[in-house]
Structure formats: structure tokens, C-alpha cells
């Protein structure tokens, strides 16, 4: 059922955020440290395991794929609620600091991507924003 996928997703996020908060407390920060990242790793491991054991049916996968596909619209809503006025009010120092960091960081991407590189190709497997019905 669709809800199984959604529930799985929710449980992963809740566990991740909880662990992120615990990690935050343990290093003295009142924030969620990497909770979403932890949740993502959980989900990847869980989906990998369930797929290998054929325990994840198409309907459950659709529940997850739907939210994955809602991601871009949510990002656009997020853009629409940014404090753009404050960003532009920061003046030249904020503008220069923001722009310079972005440009230098861009320049670093190819340098760091080559660390320990071997062949890496984009995975075209089932999931994400793709069509879940393509599965055999």
C-alpha cells in the first residue's frame, strides 16, 4: 500500500532527526546535526535491503516516489518564502562575501571530485523522480 512507503519515509526521517539532535547535544550544539543526512542513509540501506528481499512492492515504492517528485515544487515554495529583501539590504559586504564564496566553491568542485576517482556513472535505476512503473 502507498501508505507503507510514506510511513517508512516518515520513520526514517524521525529516527534521523532524533539521532541528529542527540549528536548535537553530545557536541554541545542545540541543533539537529546532519539528521536529514542520517535519515537518507537509513532509507538507502533499508530500501536496498527490502528490494533485495523482494519485500517492497510497487505500491509502497509509489508512496516514496511521490514525495521524491514533490521535492522540486517544495523547493520552489521554499524559494518563495526566503527573506530576499534582507539579503539585498545587506549591502556590498554581504553581497561580495556571498558571491565570492560561491564562485570559489564552484571552482573547487572539479578539484575535489577527482580525489580517488574511478569510473562513476549516473545510476538509472528505479526510483527518485523517475517513473516507478518502469520496473519489470
Amino acid at each position: 500500500m502507498v501508505i507503507y512507503g510514506v510511513a517508512l519515509l516518515s520513520i526514517c526521517l524521525l529516527i534521523g532527526v532524533l539521532l541528529g539532535k542527540l549528536l548535537g547535544v553530545s557536541i554541545g550544539i542545540d541543533a539537529n546535526v546532519g539528521g536529514v543526512g542520517i535519515a537518507m542513509v537509513f532509507l538507502v540501506l533499508l530500501v536496498d535491503y527490502l528490494k533485495k528481499n523482494k519485500k517492497l512492492n510497487i505500491k509502497s515504492q509509489e508512496g516514496m516516489a511521490f514525495w521524491g517528485a514533490m521535492y522540486i515544487p517544495i523547493v520552489i515554495a521554499m524559494a518563495a518564502k526566503q527573506n530576499v529583501v534582507a539579503a539585498l539590504d545587506g549591502g556590498p559586504i554581504a553581497l561580495l562575501a556571498g558571491v565570492t564564496t560561491v564562485i570559489v566553491s564552484w571552482a573547487m568542485v572539479p578539484v575535489l571530485s577527482n580525489i580517488g576517482r574511478d569510473k562513476s556513472i549516473l545510476n538509472e535505476e528505479l526510483g527518485g523522480t523517475g517513473d516507478v512503473r518502469n520496473v519489470k
Partner: peptide, 29 residues
């Protein structure tokens, strides 16, 4: 819709399409 709760939920959902092998390979970089 654009707040932290749904955003994090949807980000985690995108991991459904991620490949474990790729993540392992890119651990160090």
C-alpha cells in the same frame, strides 16, 4: 509547503532513488 518539515521529508524521499554504491565510493571526497 516550503518550510523545514516538508522540505526535509521530500529531501529524504529523494534518497529513495540514490545508489548505495555511489555513496560508498564518494565517502572520502
Amino acid at each position: 509547503m516550503g518550510g523545514g518539515m516538508l522540505r526535509d521529508f521530500a529531501i529524504v524521499a529523494t534518497a529513495f532513488g540514490a545508489s548505495l554504491d555511489e555513496i560508498k565510493k564518494a565517502g572520502l571526497p
